[in-house]
Amino acid sequence: MHLERTTWTDIDTVATDLAMVPIGSTEQHGPHAALGTDTRNAEAVAESAAERLDDPVIVSPAVPVGIAEEHRQFSGTLWTSESTFRSYVRDIVRSLASHGFDRVVLVNGHGGNIAALREVAGTITRHDDAYAVPFTWFDEVGDHASRMGHGGPLETALLQHANPDCVHEDRLEDAAAEASDRWGEWQGRTNLAFDSAEFTENGVVGDPREASADLGADLLDAATDALVELLETVAEHETDRPPHR
């Protein structure tokens, strides 16, 4: 059940304590994919899981701006500080919990959010009247996860399937021609680069020509399966914190 599409009186009757918060970013994804790619993909996975789950689950409006300063040289990219991002996500979860929706999965679509989401989920669980865990869809697609880039085959494919209007198919060749094949500039295990403009001319990492709507459907199925399993586990998870020892 989507909060923004529902009246408060209907929400008041929903018998669940389970909720999802889709979290994305507004940032460059090359010349072929929309700035809102991460948000649209997170929303698609959350909506798919909500439809498949047997029990009701609340889906909050998406968080469309995340930790994305690494793309600051590309027009249209928006970002917030990690502290602001964590506080904002925490406030959303607190709001949900105040209405009884206190088991929350943070459905993430942006790599730059991962560390902050793990941290804020821990803070929420330890100090607030709620239990929260992060879920990043592209980590949950089996062997396909190794092909994750930026504006590459995975993100583009899921867009082609779920939001085809967000992909410029006629720009895929040009996007691939200037793409990087690796995220960063590496010395051993140390990434010397902080901004994506340091290693990719057009913001793309990976070959978006390898994407297809059929691949996107497979990715959505795999991510949905994993998210449904997580939601079912969270619904039954013991949330009492261990005592001091």
Rank of each mutant, 00 (worst) to 15 (best):
C166L: 13
N191S: 12
L227A: 03
S180I: 01
A213P: 07
L172C: 10
E198S: 09
Q187H: 15
A223F: 02
R171Y: 04
A177C: 01
G203F: 08
R171M: 09
H168Y: 11
L219M: 03
D181K: 06
G203T: 05
F199S: 02
W183M: 08
N191K: 12
G184S: 07
Q187S: 14
E173R: 13
H168S: 13
W183K: 03
A162M: 07
S196V: 15
V205S: 11
D170I: 03
L192F: 13
A222W: 00
E185L: 06
A162W: 05
A197I: 06
E201C: 02
A193V: 09
F199Q: 07
S196M: 14
G203C: 06
L172P: 13
T200Y: 04
L192D: 11
E185R: 10
E178F: 04
S196Y: 07
L227D: 03
D225H: 03
E169T: 12
E198K: 11
S212Y: 05
W183V: 04
H161A: 15
A197T: 10
L159F: 08
H161P: 11
V167W: 07
R209Y: 00
S180K: 00
H161F: 14
E198Y: 07
D225P: 00
Q187T: 15
A177I: 09
C166Q: 14
T190G: 04
D174A: 15
L227S: 02
D181N: 11
L220G: 01
D170T: 12
E198W: 06
D195A: 12
L219Q: 01
R182Y: 02
D221G: 04
L192G: 07
A179F: 02
A193T: 12
A222Y: 03
S196H: 10
R171H: 11
A226V: 01
E210D: 14
G184K: 00
L159W: 09
F194S: 15
V167C: 07
A217W: 00
G184M: 02
H161R: 13
A217K: 12
S196C: 14
G184I: 01
R171D: 06
F199E: 02
D225E: 13
V205K: 04
E201S: 14
E201P: 03
T190E: 12
D207E: 05
N163Q: 15
T190M: 14
G216P: 06
D181P: 01
A193W: 06
G216A: 11
V205T: 13
A197L: 08
L220V: 10
L192I: 10
E210C: 08
E198G: 09
R189C: 12
A176N: 08
A176K: 08
D207R: 01
D225K: 00
S196A: 14
N202P: 09
D218R: 09
S180R: 03
V167E: 00
E185D: 12
G184Q: 00
A223S: 11
G206H: 02
C166E: 15
A213Y: 09
T200M: 05
A179V: 02
T200V: 10
D218K: 09
G206Q: 06
A211P: 02
C166R: 14
P164C: 13
L227N: 04
A217S: 10
S196K: 09
D181G: 04
L159S: 12
A179D: 01
D181W: 03
N191E: 13
L159I: 10
N163G: 04
P208H: 03
H161C: 14
D170P: 10
L159T: 08
S212G: 08
A193Q: 09
E178G: 04
D214R: 11
E169W: 06
P164H: 13
